[in-house]
Amino acid sequence: MALASRNIRKYPGFFSMTLLCMVLLYAPLAVVAAYSFNDSLSITRWGGFSFRWYLDVFFGLEADKFRDAAWNSLSIAFLAATASTIIATAASIGMVRGGEFRAKPASFALISLPLMVPEIVTAVATLIFFSAIGFVRGYATILVAHIVFCIPFAYLPIEARLRGIEGTFEEAAQDLYASRGQAFRFVLLPLMAPGIVAGYLLAFIISLDDFIITNFVKGAGIETLPTAIFGAVKQGIKPNILALSTLMLLISIGFVTISYFVSRKGVKPGGHGAPETT
């Protein structure tokens, strides 16, 4: 084909560049996952296959610490994702269905700005804010901070979904005697559901994974999984950290997979329903 010469694969070095990127990205993960099954105290020398470090995570010396941290991480992720998804859903309806208002571009910038601000800046600012209002650092400060920085992540997929839903569905519902509330509940919400689920899962992972902001606002005596792992690593990496990291990786992959399938499935909200004729 005439186009073949423009095929990106024909550029010199394409293959080696790709390989290099893949190796840099995934080789460390593969090594961590592989060595989490290492039946040895060393993290570099292979000593046979075993589940001992997984058992160690759950029943070993540090098990209590990890269990508390996991509980904090999961409960904060659950609450922060729930709260930020609700806020993001309301915000997207205001932005997409609210008609034109003067502050619209500003509002959008405000919602998505946290994605662009360096996380360390947000972390410092949040810490200063909590100190200024005299908020005692602990579980609540982590939760509030997570809700806030999860909002833009929940917002983007929800907003994208809502934009694809034609306004005539809500009009049709109201035309058929549904109040605004009923039109939302029976028509708009089910149509938005895939976007909402995707936003929720994204927020959940982002919260579960956060280290920088959490580390700044958490205060003493409370850990989440990332801060607990960081703390443990400071005294040298033990193989149980590899097992714990691999578990977190699995959870993340699981969520991303669900999110992918949910946002792809769902009923197509195109509206015309493809009026092909027979």
Partner: peptide, 10 residues
């Protein structure tokens, strides 16, 4: 109303 593109709830 019967809408131009029907607007059936998908």
């Amino acid at each position: 109303t019967v809408f131009q593109h029907y607007a059936l709830f998908p």
